[in-house]
């Protein structure tokens, strides 16, 4: 009986917990960027997915170049080395978009929906640039040691029948996400500039009366959002693979995460990322084998025991989004109600 229980736990760990942690971290980083832009600039930036794709594309290209030069980090993926360049490129793109597009609508005090539409234009352009440079296809740029522990090794190590595999990229994702989030919170809570961003998000007019420079706050917000997007995108690309369209599709779960947590609330975006990621995985996981370990033989299900086919994972983020908007529009962390 006991090994069965252990097997069931390892099984869930392997297929739900470990990939879930990595996916949740990626979503959380993306959602943080969305929520910051929403908090400071007060519009839903539909170009965020393509900004992520743009940053990741730069990471992929730089990685290839480094690989050609024979530069690497040993067991760690070279992509990590390319990350600073990706961050710079994404920040530059975001600042350019703000200077050329968004700033004008801010100055004339357009309705938020006009800014959303402008972000559609930016989305088209970023999308075009990415496809123009790297094409619409899947690109793999992960190298280094693939696994920290392989399923087979785990089985040999523990003598269990089920294996637990942990990919390097998964570990890396979680580690980087924790560091980035810690740094972001330190920045927002402890530094003068970070506090001025929070003040601006809280009460724009009063922030102006206190002498806070709005242009500076906006610029810093873009840099942070773009950096988070580049990091999230690169980690996602390392973990799975890089395909521009997938990044556009990540928009929905990321927005769901930001709204679930409460828009404008960084802590909420992280919680939202975890809620969305784990809901997706638990709802689309086939529990057949899990139930095989947990139930007496007679009760075993004939089918896959999967609540929803994996292809419906959008539906999960969407349902969460709608439920939150209907029952608690401010989100879990009491974000801004707009």
């Amino acid at each position: 009986m006991l090994p069965d229980l252990l097997h069931a736990i390892v099984l869930l760990g392997n297929y739900v917990v470990v990939p879930g942690l990595a996916y949740a971290s990626q979503l959380a980083l993306g959602a943080l960027g969305i929520t910051l832009v929403f908090g400071i600039l007060r519009f839903a930036n539909l170009a965020h997915g393509d900004l992520m794709a743009f940053g990741t594309m730069v990471a992929v290209l730089v990685t290839w170049q480094f690989q050609a030069w024979g530069l690497g980090l040993g067991p760690l993926p070279t992509g990590l080395l390319a990350l600073p360049v990706a961050i710079l490129a994404a920040s530059a793109a975001a600042l350019a978009a703000d200077r050329l597009v968004f700033r004008y609508y801010r100055r004339v005090r357009s309705a938020p929906i006009v800014l959303v539409m402008a972000s559609v234009g930016v989305m088209f352009i970023l999308n075009g640039i990415v496809r123009f440079i790297i094409g619409p296809n899947d690109q793999s740029f992960s190298d280094g040691a693939r696994f920290i522990i392989k399923a087979r090794e785990f089985r040999q190590l523990t003598g269990l029948e089920e294996g637990l595999a942990i990919k390097t990229t998964q570990c890396l994702t979680v580690a980087v996400a924790v560091m980035v989030v810690a740094a972001l919170f330190w920045f927002l809570q402890r530094t003068r500039t970070g506090k001025s961003m929070r003040a601006y998000s809280d009460n724009e007019d009063l922030a102006l009366l206190s002498g806070i420079n709005p242009d500076r706050v906006v610029a810093i917000t873009w840099v942070i959002a773009a950096s988070l997007a580049a990091i999230a995108g690169t980690l996602y690309g390392l973990d799975k693979s890089f395909k521009p369209f997938t990044y556009f599709q990540l928009l929905l779960p990321m927005f769901a995460a930001a709204i679930v947590g409460g828009i404008g609330q960084p802590l909420g975006a992280i919680a939202g990322g975890f809620i969305v990621a784990f809901s997706e995985l638990t709802v689309t996981y086939a529990y057949k084998k899990f139930l095989h370990y947990m139930l007496p033989e007679a009760w075993e299900p004939a089918g896959l025991a999967q609540l929803l086919s994996t292809d419906y994972k959008f539906a999960v983020s969407f349902v969460i989004l709608v439920l939150v908007l209907l029952f608690r529009p401010t989100g879990l962390f009491r974000g801004r109600l707009l």
Binding site: R192, D202, L206, A207, S210, I212
Partner: peptide, 26 residues
């Protein structure tokens, strides 16, 4: 010059101390 508006004159999500710090931003 310093101005105290009639309404929404504090940063509601920030602590009292942070409100004061923001006042001294310049």
């Amino acid at each position: 010059m310093a101005f105290v508006p009639q309404t929404s004159n504090v940063f509601v999500t920030m602590t009292v101390q942070e409100n004061l710090e923001m006042g001294a931003f310049l």
